[in-house]
Amino acid sequence: MTTRKKKKAANPHPPPPADDALVVIRGLRFSRGPRVIFDGVDLTISRGRVTAIMGPSGSGKTTLLKLIGGQLRPDAGTIKVDGEDVHRLSRDGLYALRRRMGMLFQSGALLTDLDVFENVAYPLREHTGLPEAIIRDIVLMKLEAVGLRGARHLAARELSGGMARRVALARAIALDPMMIMYDEPFTGQDPISLATLAKLVRELNDIIGLTSVVVSHDVAETAAIADYVYVLSGGRVVGKGTPATLARTRSRWVRQFMDGLPDGPVPFHYPAGDYVEDLMTGEEG
């Protein structure tokens, strides 16, 4: 934590106060068939900060990003981004809002028929009438920011997982969005790629003045770069606070997740009938 504090002290653009909310979620309910994913979630994401959404697999973290981005509709509740109710916007309104939001998918979601340069140039070509020379300069600047200017001629299929995510990050910031949502950015990365991505998330947030929402279940890496953390489980927010606060909390839900305990409020066993009876009956299914 000391290192983090030092880093923040050296930041010439300190984040604005926590009450300046960019994303406000109230009373969110969402189900997939009979399975309740969110049951009354309230959540606030402050402008200019790195907010982590953590929780065990299947707790609906990615679903939450899709709800914020308007790709899914909630059963009840509201999601406001920069004061606009995402699910009351017209199609044009939603697309205008999305131009100010970037999203980094777990897979990178690069267009496989385009090379690195064209992938980053794609949103610029789609949404701006900029001349080719300016598009080239912007793309090179974005690629330089993620350390991949030299890889601009590589095909998307030639990239490693970590490189693909960095290219996707360059594409996500191509239009200078106000916020970026990261879906499991650290999953499946080697230690070097992981450290690189973590550094990029933090630095882009501070230097460009973004708002970052990081969905992850990698506790140590995410806590190291986050200003504020929400822990989701069982369709609800079971813990929230700064990483330091959560490290001290006594909540069993939060403790199980932060300490990586195999059993607890989130049970080891998937719900099932009586074990002995199951073995003795000998019936299939």
Binding site: Q71, Y95, M103, Q106, S107, P123
Partner: peptide, 21 residues
């Protein structure tokens, strides 16, 4: 495959309608 690899979802989040593009 574009759907399975989230390319269509990625386009939607870039405010590009995959039905049109």
């Amino acid at each position: 495959l574009m759907k399975a690899t989230e390319q269509l979802a990625g386009m939607e989040m870039m405010a590009v309608d995959p039905l049109r593009r």
